[in-house]
């Protein structure tokens, strides 16, 4: 009987240790969400300005730029997956990877070859385990993305896109990331960044807010040529920031439910341990009484 009690006590201690860890992670994530959200908000003016400028150029010029035209026979499509470096964030990485797999099936159905670009250790591990190759991987810093990384990713993608026609190039670029909807909801989202689809969730100028007829300096082509990589950068950076905020939110939620579960376990095991203790005492009493009775009747 004493063994039973010891087992329960051990389980309680183990649940308490786990709870300390999950509680700490929950609090850390909670504080980092604030920062991640602030960064998202801070980068909004940039994204808005870039999008506005790109749509202005695209609207007022009928230039056929490499980056805006649909390829006639697309052969290869790049898929960029934004996952996290660390786990313990609920379905954060798995849902984005699942979405990427669906996209892959769809693209292959259209006869395209999929080229993977992976961001975050989790996606890299997933693909490595399944022996799928990736064209390039970025690991580290998914929870606090820097603009340098975004620029690096964007440069790689634009280079691959421009290099199309040769073996290495790609004809389409899709990104898959977790969009930060609110603290409780993060939805995986697929966006095709190239060829350009300017209308994607960014506020469009309303009727009253007609874009003025711009003068371009130097020439329209050059302006578009310089703007588009910047636009891609800003899309990538935005996806990374959203993904980071989502990661923290998902982790906070996962860790909160883990803490709650630990609490529940501790409560249940405490009850069982109390029962076991009482049973032990009861048994001891009945043994003593029984023994005393036996002694009395033996006289």
């Amino acid at each position: 009987m004493g063994a039973q009690l010891r087992v329960y006590r051990q389980k309680i201690r183990s649940a308490q240790t786990t709870k300390k860890i999950t509680r700490a992670m929950e609090l850390i994530s909670a504080s980092r969400i604030q920062k991640a959200q602030a960064r998202m908000a801070a980068s909004a003016p940039y994204a808005r300005a870039v999008t506005r400028a790109v749509s202005a150029v695209a609207t007022y010029s009928n230039v056929d730029h490499v980056l805006t035209t649909e390829r006639e026979n697309p052969r290869r499509a790049a898929v960029v997956v934004f996952s996290s470096d660390r786990g313990l964030a609920g379905g954060f990485s798995s849902q984005v990877i699942r979405e990427a797999n669906e996209l892959r099936t769809r693209l292959e159905g259209e006869g395209l070859e999929v080229v993977n670009y992976l961001v975050g250790r989790k996606a890299v591990q997933y693909y490595a385990f399944r022996r799928r190759t990736a064209a390039k991987e970025w690991m580290g810093g998914t929870d606090q993305p820097t603009f340098e990384t975004a620029k690096d990713i964007a440069d790689t993608l634009v280079d691959a896109f421009i290099a199309s026609g040769e073996n290495e190039g790609v004809d389409e670029i899709h990104i898959v990331y977790n969009r930060f909807v609110s603290l409780v909801t993060q939805t995986p989202e697929i966006v095709r960044v190239l060829p350009l689809e300017i209308v994607d969730g960014v506020e469009e100028p309303g009727e009253s807010d007609v874009l003025p007829l711009y003068e371009f300096e130097p020439e329209v082509d050059d302006v578009l040529g310089a703007l588009l990589p910047v636009y891609i950068e800003s899309r990538i950076f935005n996806a990374m920031l959203q993904s980071a905020a989502s990661e923290h939110a998902a982790r906070q939620k996962a860790m909160k439910s883990a803490t709650d579960n630990a609490d529940k376990l501790i409560r249940e095991y405490t009850r069982l341990a109390n029962n076991a203790r009482q049973a032990e005492i009861t048994q001891q009493i009945s043994e003593i009484v029984g023994g005393a009775d036996a002694l009395v009747s033996a006289k």
């Binding site: 202005a56 003025p212 003068e215 300096e217 130097p218 302006v223």
Partner: peptide, 19 residues
């Protein structure tokens, strides 16, 4: 400074997009 050279902007300038 744009790629074409220095540009000065005063109120009432025409719409422009420059690199």
């Amino acid at each position: 400074r744009t790629t074409e050279g220095e540009i000065g902007i005063l109120p009432g300038h025409e719409p422009i997009l420059g690199i």
